[in-house]
Design a binder for these strands. Structure first.
Lengths: 344, 344
DNA sequence: CTGAAAGCGCTTACAG
DNA sequence: CTGAAAGCGCTTACAG
């Protein structure tokens, strides 16, 4: 076992003041630029800080200033295709403004507990990892909260950040119709109570309507944002003899399932039936054929959420709803492959 | 813009003491179970806490107890296939012992800065995101540090946690020889100065030797842990007429490149040449054919690192080197597919 | 078992 | 521009 000697007494603001021959108040002022200090004095303080290798103790600072400079992120669990890019965005947004990040997972348990007023200045709530009533209680406290990928419970004016699900689906359907020349486009819905799913379907319908294509309920099935469920759904449609020239899967996972069902049925993608998805998960480009999909701006959304939360903390206000734009990524599965920077 | 009212005065340990008709010392004692308190008193305190919805302020606690209960994680950037599982493991290990996690990215910049003695009790250093001399300085302070996937600079007894690169490669090569019946096994090395790469090659060689297969330098090329580089390398070997019945790619990325090169050359995997990788990245199972590879215990490694760091913090000692075992995942690309729980 | 008091290392009115 | 002092909300010897 490797031994580690206990660190010796920490160097404090007092040591710096002593060394510089000044008061701790002055040292604090040059560190925080919180009041004018003469150039000469500033220099002496800075020199002392460097000589002593002084770093202000966070807890003391937090206690005295009543500010933690910490943002909390609460989510159900670490992992999934969303997590990394989202965290990267949040971290960037936080760091830019001098905030640190505290992460807590609920993991099925209902409680908040580990994150709150006692250790953060505000908190980001991902998806629906918190029941409405807890959110309500939290919001009632006046504690700054921003929602990520989740609509606020009705009546509560909690700022919310997400991306353009409806427009994205609209973009994709437009593409399928206008560029690929499809008109019998099946749609694989997400889970029944899923917000994203609803908006995506709405975008699909809007596009159809805008192009004068009548909505056909036989072309819609539940893919459940799940490859197996989607596979079964497509199998069923095929068995029922549904005519279609393209399948717009509600997300990439279900697109994978759809492609599998088609392959088993001896159908080629995209020659016989095109398949497209939504999200642009990492493996989308590695599928055979590479999947045309809608890129969700996950990282930017995280970044924006951090910014909104910081606004709320520092100025008491934030945009009620921020919706970031999506991007169409044309690869091969839609049958009209165009070479371009987006395609890789 | 949504407005948020400032939170009213926080409820403190004082309020609890007042309400319970006791001293704050006693309240502190029941909260921390740090000294015996009569049952009756305990009940009163607990009741007061619940009634007032009291949560101890972390900063005050940290300041008074000289303990932050925070672990720092420093890495170059958020993302990649390692990040999520590693973080999940670390977070679990930290949470179990009542620690929170602070994450900081270096992003090319050399400094530590945001994480240190001033806001954490110890720190996990991922890979080589910190130059040797900074590590040395840190360690000299006596500040608890544990290395993740990185050997300590020579002479420094900094605990290190990683997984069994050599044994993993050995396992895989054994499998290729014993189960799949291959003997002319090419090896795609990682980058020249990469620790992991070196150990994996060592494992490959050991297996060869153990099976009495002479080492053939023509069968070894640099794949660089990169798909493009690996693709080029395999192309070259093919062009040179190198005879081989399997390619052991140093990691899954290079396995992807190898498979691509083979496909372009009109060779079938695994019928003509088997291809296997190392790491078991998420897309490995989605490749065509699904990739046989070595599963790296990323999550457990993160968990173990957190545990070691906490040991170091609380007891002043930790294992100098923890190496977690890998697992062989047989899928189809090695040509001897076996049905089993590991294969999905 | 319980309390009074010092102290953790800062920030921030309040004076000057 | 600078300093003395109070106070942030806890923990922990020290007494009793």
């Amino acid at each position: 076992m490797a031994k580690s000697k206990k660190s010796v007494s920490r160097v404090t603001i007092n040591d710096v003041a002593l060394r510089a021959g000044l008061s701790i108040a002055t040292v604090s002022r040059v560190i925080n630029r919180t009041a004018p200090v003469s150039e000469e004095t500033t220099k002496r303080v800075l020199a002392a800080i460097k000589e002593l290798d002084y770093v202000p103790h966070q807890a003391a600072r937090q206690l005295a200033s009543r500010k933690t400079s910490m943002l909390g992120l609460i989510l159900d669990e670490i992992g999934g295709d969303f997590f990394s890019p989202m965290l990267r965005g949040i971290e960037a947004g936080a760091r830019e403004e001098g905030y640190n990040l505290l992460i807590a997972t609920t993991q099925g348990e209902s409680g908040i507990g580990v994150i709150g007023e006692h250790n953060t200045d505000g908190m980001l709530v991902f998806d629906d990892c918190l029941p409405d009533d807890e959110l309500q209680r939290l919001h009632a406290t006046g504690f700054p909260v921003v929602l990520l990928y989740r609509n606020p419970p009705q009546g509560l004016d909690i700022p919310s950040v997400a991306f353009e699900n409806k427009n994205g689906a609209r973009q994709m359907t437009d593409h399928l119709i206008e560029r690929c020349g499809h008109s019998r486009i099946a749609f694989l819905k997400g889970p029944p109570n899923n917000e994203d799913a609803r908006w995506r379907e709405k975008g699909y319908r809007e596009s159809l309507e805008a192009h004068g294509i009548p909505f056909d309920p036989y072309l819609v099935a539940v893919g459940g944002f799940d490859d197996h469920e989607a596979e079964a759904a497509v199998e069923r449609m095929l068995a029922e003899g549904t005519q279609m020239d393209a399948i717009f899967a509600g997300d990439d996972e279900s697109a994978i399932g759809a492609m599998l069902a088609l392959r088993y049925a001896g159908l080629r993608v995209p020659e016989d039936i095109a398949v497209v998805g939504f999200d642009d998960i990492p493996i989308a480009r590695h599928l055979t054929p590479p999947l045309t999909t809608i890129r969700a701006p996950i990282e930017s959304t995280g970044y924006e959420a951090a910014r909104q939360l910081i606004n709320l903390i520092e100025h008491g206000s934030a945009e009620p709803l921020s919706l970031l734009p999506t991007e169409l990524v044309v690869r091969e599965s839609c049958g009209c492959h165009v070479i371009g920077p987006d395609s890789s």
